[in-house]
């Protein structure tokens, strides 16, 4: 593994953790807040704006903004088909937090669901976060091509260009 792949892996893991934690905490606080706000079914924006003045909702929404920004930063280099299943750890965390802190009963079916999600995450975690060429990598590749072309033109080192 080259140092740039290791940096990419490290950066991806850290940001995935930020995405997951801000999502779980944000949604939990929002859910807690919505319970005290009451039924919200309106096409007018006013009741939604009023809901934002509830402190639980306000902190929840702030964390969801952190979630949106970190998710966008992660997508600036990582594949959507990588980010999508990896951030599913959030569901597992919701269940574990519910079990540990809210003393909710986690049924056998839900444990099965958690196991499936973890298996999926482990599988996807074994793939490279980026399978499409990014801009700098594409430039490097074209430089290599130019060098190879120059070398084959010079003739003497022709054999080097062969695989």
């Amino acid at each position: 593994m080259t140092s740039s792949t290791r940096t990419l892996q490290f950066k991806t893991r850290i940001l995935t953790a930020v995405v997951v934690l801000s999502n779980v905490l944000g949604n939990s606080l929002l859910s807690r807040g919505m319970r005290s706000v009451g039924v919200l079914l309106s096409l007018s924006p006013l009741p939604y704006v009023q809901a934002l003045f509830n402190p639980w909702v306000a902190v929840g929404v702030s964390l969801l903004i952190v979630w949106l920004l970190s998710h966008m930063a992660l997508l600036s280099w990582a594949d959507l088909s990588y980010v999508l299943p990896m951030t599913a750890v959030a569901y597992v965390l919701v269940a574990v937090v519910g079990r540990l802190f809210l003393h909710e009963q986690v049924s056998l079916v839900r444990w099965a669901g958690i196991t499936l999600i973890m298996l999926g995450v482990i599988l996807v975690g074994r793939t490279s976060p980026r399978t499409t060429l990014s801009q700098p990598a594409a430039e490097k590749d074209s430089r290599v091509e130019v060098k190879t072309a120059l070398r084959s033109m010079s003739g003497s080192q022709h054999s080097e260009a062969r695989p």
């Binding site: 999508l84 299943p85 569901y91 669901g113 499936l116 999926g120």
Partner: peptide, 17 residues
């Protein structure tokens, strides 16, 4: 296949939840 299997496992797991 790793990504397809991974996504299907995750989607299946989330449904079971």
């Amino acid at each position: 296949w790793k990504r397809w299997m991974g996504v299907l496992l995750v989607a299946g797991g989330v449904t079971l939840l």
